Amino acid sequence: MRNTRSLIMLALAIVLAFGAVVVAAQWINAQAAGNTAKVAVAQLDIGLGARITPEMVRLTDWPANAMPPGAISDASALASRVSRASIVRGEPILESKLAPPGTQGGLSAVVPEGKRAITVRVNDVVGVAGFALPGNFVDILVNTQEEGMRNQTARDPSISKIVLERIMVLAVAQESSRDETKPKVVNAVTLEVTPDQAEKLDLARSVGTLSLVLRNQVDPDPSKTAGATKASLLGKEVTPEPKTPDARPQAPKRIAVTAPQIKVERIEVIKGLERSTQQF
């Protein structure tokens, strides 16, 4: 009788404990559900300028108190949107990384408002050995001759000067995706510039040869250089230019001629009390 009562109490305790576990689990799940929200994340890597399809997106739970700004919770709102930046797998798809609705795919969707895309021809040296990748910043260096010095032999007119700074690379060749695993040597690089910079770049490549100078992405400071010439390269002082002779005919100089002086001799003659002077 006593054993039966003990078994009943033990069974009742087990049932109550199980019920408490179930209730606690439901309460924890309810609390967790109230602190999370659905966020659209990339199900696979999305390249720059790619059109987003439903297969590229999935919804996942995200802490409500750590929701990234511009996060999208409705997967249908991403239909036919175009990415303006590379999105890796598992990364939240933010509004700042998407082109405006209705934008067509391609590189034109990546160009910001007020900017232009211009392509320059490069080689394995000019293109920084293939290390100038989409998303990097470069400076544009031009090697040309100073205006007004080409016909003078006293000084070498060659000069190398940085004409544009902190220009972002949009694409290399026909690829706008960024692969940081290895460099890629191409024959053309597309740059993001303003209309004023596009005019300068077009003039620079017509008057000389261009080179790309890779720079640190977090370095916004401009460089103030006067350009490198042959004299500054070799550490020589610039010699003054020789004066060219005047080709105009000069009037003959007038020579003043003075008349010769005649020596005059004077003799004093005395006759008695009279005195006179005669000149010869």
Rank of each mutant, 00 (worst) to 15 (best):
A11F: 11
K243C: 01
I162F: 07
D179N: 15
F18I: 12
E147L: 12
L107W: 06
K230R: 10
V22C: 04
T103K: 05
S211N: 14
R89N: 12
A154T: 12
A256E: 14
K236R: 13
P63Q: 07
I28W: 11
K243N: 06
W62E: 00
V41A: 03
I262N: 01
A25I: 06
L273Y: 03
K38Q: 14
L212A: 09
I159A: 08
V122P: 01
L59I: 08
N216D: 14
R2Q: 09
Q104P: 00
N123D: 15
T194S: 15
G148L: 06
E147N: 06
T194G: 13
I118C: 01
V185C: 04
G135E: 03
R155L: 13
L94M: 09
K38N: 11
P260I: 06
R215Y: 02
A226I: 06
P54C: 07
A13Y: 00
L10Q: 02
V126L: 13
Q278M: 03
T119F: 14
K182E: 15
I262V: 13
P100F: 02
P63K: 00
T225Y: 00
G102Y: 02
V88M: 10
N35E: 15
I72G: 02
V57Q: 01
T103L: 03
P260E: 13
A171S: 10
P183I: 04
R215D: 01
G90W: 11
D179G: 05
A33M: 12
K182A: 15
G102L: 04
L164E: 08
E265Y: 13
L214Q: 08
Q43T: 10
Q104G: 13
V122N: 03
R150P: 00
S86W: 04
V264G: 00
S211I: 00
E113L: 05
L210N: 07
I255R: 08
G235H: 10
L191P: 04
L191G: 03
A79K: 14
R205D: 04
T239E: 11
V82H: 07
N65G: 09
L16A: 14
P134K: 05
A154N: 11
S232Q: 05
Q145Y: 14
E268T: 09
I87C: 05
A188C: 00
N3F: 09
V125E: 08
D221W: 09
R166Q: 13
A173P: 02
N29G: 12
A154L: 00
A33W: 00
F280L: 05
R254M: 11
K182H: 14
D61C: 01
A25K: 12
I262Q: 10
A117K: 07
E237W: 00
S276H: 02
E199K: 12
S232V: 01
M9E: 10
A37Q: 14
V163A: 02
S160F: 00
V111R: 04
P54H: 07
A117N: 09
G148P: 06
R2N: 15
S73M: 07
A173G: 14
G70R: 06
Q261S: 10
K253D: 06
Q26E: 11
A33N: 15
R58D: 13
G70A: 06
I93Y: 03
K243R: 08
